[in-house]
Each structure stands twice: as C-alpha cells, then as structure tokens.
Simulated scan of single mutants.
Amino acid sequence: IKQAATMIQEAVSSILKLHSYLQSRTDARVKDYPLMQSPVQMTTILLAYVFSSVYVGPRLMANRKPFHLHTAMIIYNLSMVLLNAYIVYEFMMSGWATTYTWRCDLIDTSSSPQTLRMIRASWLFYFSKYIELLDTVFFVLRKKQSQITFLHVFHHSFMPWTWWWGITLTPAGGMGSFHAMVNATVHVIMYFYYGLSAAGPRFQKYLWWKKYMTGIQLLQFIVVSIHISQYYFMEKCDYQVPLWIHLIWMYGVFFFILFSNFWVQAYIKGKRLPTADNKPKLNGSTIEHITVVANGKHLENGNAHHYSNGKIFLGKVKEI
C-alpha cells in the first residue's frame, strides 16, 4: 500500500510539474483567449464529447423518435459557411495574402497589429472546431448513429486537441498555419453543401456535385502536403518548431492515402456506394445514397429516410 501511495504521489507530482511547465511556455499573446489557460479544460470537453457521442447520446435517444431539425440545420450550416469564410479572409489579410512568401514563413514572435490579427484568426479556427461538434449532436438527435463512425469522432476530437498545442506554443505559426486556411476554405464549400441538402427536395437538383466532395478533400491534402514538403528541400529554413512541420506532413499524407482508397472503392470499383439510377421510393420519398468525405463526415441527401438499425443494400433499405 505504501509503495502504491508513493507511485500515485509521484504521478500527481509529475502531472503538476507538466502543467506548470505548459503554463510557463504558453505564449503570452494568447493566454487571455477562452479555453487557452490549461489543457485540462479542452481535454475534459473533448472526452465528454467522445463519451456522449458513442455512449450517452445513442442510449438517451434509443426509445425516442428522431428530431426533425431542418430549420436548425439550415441556420447552423449557413452560419458555418459565413464563419469559415471570415476565417479564410482573416488568414489571408493577416499574412497569406500580404506579407507571407508561401515558402519558409517563420513563426512571428512580434506583437505587431498584423501578428495579433493572425493570432486571432488562428484562435478562431481552433474555436470553430468546438462549434463543429454540433455536427455530431445533430446526428445523435436525428438518430443517425451509423454516421458517427470512428473516423468522424476521431477527426472532431483530435483536431481541436492538437490545435490547442499549436496555438499555445506557436500562435502565429507561419507556414504551420497554411493547412488551417485550406481546411477552412474546404469547410466553406462543405457546409454550403450541407445547407442545401438540409433545405429539402426542391434543392436536390443543385446537389449533382455530391460525388466531388471527396475529390475536394483529396485536393486539400495534396495542396497541404506539397506546401509543407518544401521544408525538406530548402537549403535553409530555420522554422522554430520543426515538429509541427513533420506532424502536418504526416497528417496530410495519412488522410490522403485513407481517402484515396475510399475514392477507388466507392467511385471506381463501385463497392461502397449504391447506384443513383432507378432510386426506389419509401413513403413517397426518394432514397439517396450517402457519400463519405475526408473528414469522417457523411454527406446526406436532405430528403433521405433511414432507420437507426437499417443499412442500405443496392439502393434499398433493409431492416436488420
């Protein structure tokens, strides 16, 4: 017992030392922003998100009818379009369209107005990842549990967790912030699609480009990987935290491989998606197919009907 108590005491002491170290290393320019004071806050929120999405939410909805949240989803998705467009604009005006070279752009350690603007843009991108957790809330309330995949939950929890470390230590990240601007750009397109999809049957004719959402995501990973790969071929680039470069490169390549495989299986071999021809009817409503995009989300036709225990086989809903 005494040995176990000693081990626990040492573990707690190590955690407290790490916490003190992180507080001392937290960039003074970002300390006063919400959710930036400690990793405990954001880790608690994200763990609660995972637990609620996978366990609590589905059980609370098990014996309840799904909510119809079309109006809320339209407002949410269009709001996310505007938010991400604003984030892209701020990234561009605080460096990427003004002073950055798009090559070896170092971490800015100054407190100039433009640098502080970049820090605000970076924090806003980080905070938007918490707002995006509502994607999963809508799935739970609408009993779309089959869409809450491992990849979906992993993406929504891992992104804000890693970005906390990024803007805690390097809030004006130079070339390390490029992937955030690209991601926000893709989300403008993605949430615009979601908004149209949620708006109902009269907008279905405008959703012909559903298939290409995965292609847009793949293009995102290609652009990010090419940009960050410059670091490995430059004669000299004194980027202050090379670890961020390596992590961004691995992230881009990993998801490119993952969703290239999805593209091949779904659109070339046709193994993953039902055909869109001769769509059957269910209570007068057309059953559309579901498309998975590269951030683990599913693009769902706003007029489709699914059941919590149903799967789609060759365009038909089969109860199991």
Rank of each mutant, 00 (worst) to 15 (best):
I1L: 13
K2Y: 10
I8W: 14
Q9L: 11
E10P: 01
S14T: 14
S20N: 15
Q23D: 13
R25I: 13
D27K: 05
V30C: 10
V30E: 02
V30A: 12
Y33W: 13
T44P: 05
L47W: 06
S53L: 04
V54L: 14
Y55S: 11
R59Y: 07
R59Q: 13
M61H: 09
R64C: 08
L69A: 05
T71I: 10
A72N: 07
Y76Q: 00
N77R: 00
L83Y: 07
N84Y: 12
A85Q: 08
Y86T: 11
Y86M: 12
I87W: 01
E90I: 01
M93N: 10
W96F: 15
A97G: 15
T98L: 06
T99Q: 14
T101P: 04
D105C: 04
D105V: 08
L106N: 10
D108G: 05
S112A: 13
L116E: 13
R117T: 09
R117W: 10
M118G: 09
M118W: 02
I119S: 00
A121F: 04
S122Y: 02
F127P: 00
K129T: 10
L133Y: 11
L134V: 12
D135I: 01
D135Y: 02
F139P: 00
L141R: 04
L141F: 12
K144N: 11
I148L: 08
I148A: 01
T149L: 06
F150C: 05
L151Q: 10
H152T: 09
H152V: 07
H155F: 06
F158T: 12
P160E: 06
T162D: 01
W163G: 00
W164Y: 15
W165P: 06
W165F: 15
I167S: 02
T168S: 15
P171G: 06
G173P: 00
G173I: 03
M175T: 07
H179N: 09
A184I: 05
A184M: 10
V186S: 03
V186P: 01
H187K: 04
V188H: 04
I189Y: 14
F192E: 00
Y194S: 01
G195W: 01
R202Y: 07
K205W: 02
Y206G: 03
L207K: 08
K210Y: 07
T214Y: 03
Q217C: 03
L219H: 05
V224I: 15
H227Y: 15
S229F: 08
S229Y: 09
S229G: 08
Y231A: 04
F233I: 11
E235G: 15
Q240L: 12
Q240A: 13
Q240F: 05
L243R: 12
W244H: 12
W244R: 01
W244Q: 11
I245V: 15
M250T: 14
V253P: 07
F254N: 10
N261E: 13
V264A: 08
V264E: 03
A266C: 07
Y267Q: 01
I268R: 14
G270T: 02
K271Q: 13
T275L: 10
L282G: 02
G284R: 10
G284I: 10
T286N: 03
H289N: 11
V293W: 07
V293N: 04
A294L: 06
G296L: 04
K297C: 04
E300M: 11
N301P: 07
G302L: 01
N303C: 09
H305R: 14
S308I: 12
S308D: 14
S308H: 13
N309L: 12
V317D: 07
K318G: 03
E319F: 14
I320L: 13
